[in-house]
Design a binder for these strands. Structure first.
Lengths: 141, 141
DNA sequence: ACCAATATTGTAATAATTACAACTTAATTA
DNA sequence: TAATTAAGTTGTAATTATTACAATATTGGT
């Protein structure tokens, strides 16, 4: 068995998630594709290896992994959910011109507010939008 | 004409948006309902006054207002876009138990990162999720 | 290897959003 | 103020993302 599978298997077990080929494949895909893929992208790619794969399985798996905190859900817009295997706190920037989503480092601990004193905060997301350097250059040409 | 309509008319004109009864009504609704309504909520309410109202008009109007920067789009999750007439920078907290969305003050200027040095940032959103005090109390009973 | 619990699959249903053509209204000019 | 033109509204149909669910298959523990 590939070392990565071994590592992912352990992580799944640590979170009390049963092991299946599909789950390992989805996790592997996310770990190897840090480009914030959509369900469609994950499905299309894995479908080549697993012809019987169902899109429902992708949804189900992603929800399971997200509930366990193993992956992050990105709802930056477009009614098209994206997923991210990097769970350390970071922000997401979406270029409104090319659609690309970029990661950026940000200290979430700076995000404090008295207004949420008695709230239990489980998840923090920071989404920026604008134009990326590549698209800025294209416009100026 | 109501004073609010007069004010909203001026704001629309300042943004080069043509005046229509539907647009005034949508804007008025958002100003009077700061609860981050969905398209469905806006439509259901306005439909009582304007029986011929089309949901397409709501979508079109909201997109126009958002493009002009007159309202904010909230994509916190659930594949259900919400809209907010308060455009001053503030964060949104969604209670995962009751679904309510709360505003909270946050200094967006604290959100700086070297990673986006050459990016043009047009919009900043901060979304938190968790459990609100009301739902915390209910759970402990 | 067996069994019970859980996962996967495929289809169908649901829900949000957009496309588009016909009709209506708003702003502009004479 | 009437005519003109550009833009907005409407209703229907199409598209797309996501969920529901029942039948089948697989997993993990005994």
């Amino acid at each position: 068995m590939k070392p990565l599978y071994d590592k992912l298997t352990k992580e799944l077990k640590r979170n009390n998630i049963r092991i299946s080929y599909q789950r390992l494949k989805v996790l592997e895909y996310l770990v190897n594709h840090k480009c914030h893929p959509t369900v469609e992208q994950i499905y299309s790619s894995l479908n080549k290896d697993i012809p019987t794969l169902s899109k429902t399985t992708i949804y189900s798996t992603l929800n399971t992994l997200a509930d366990a905190g193993m992956i992050r859900v990105i709802n930056i817009e477009d009614h098209e959910t994206r997923y991210d295997a990097t769970i350390e706190n970071h922000g997401h920037f979406k270029c409104e011109s090319c659609g690309e989503i970029y990661d950026f480092n940000i200290d979430m601990d700076l995000l404090v507010t008295k207004d949420l004193k008695n709230f239990k905060i489980l998840d923090k997301n920071v989404y920026f939008k604008g134009v990326c350097p590549d698209c800025m250059n294209k416009k100026n040409q």
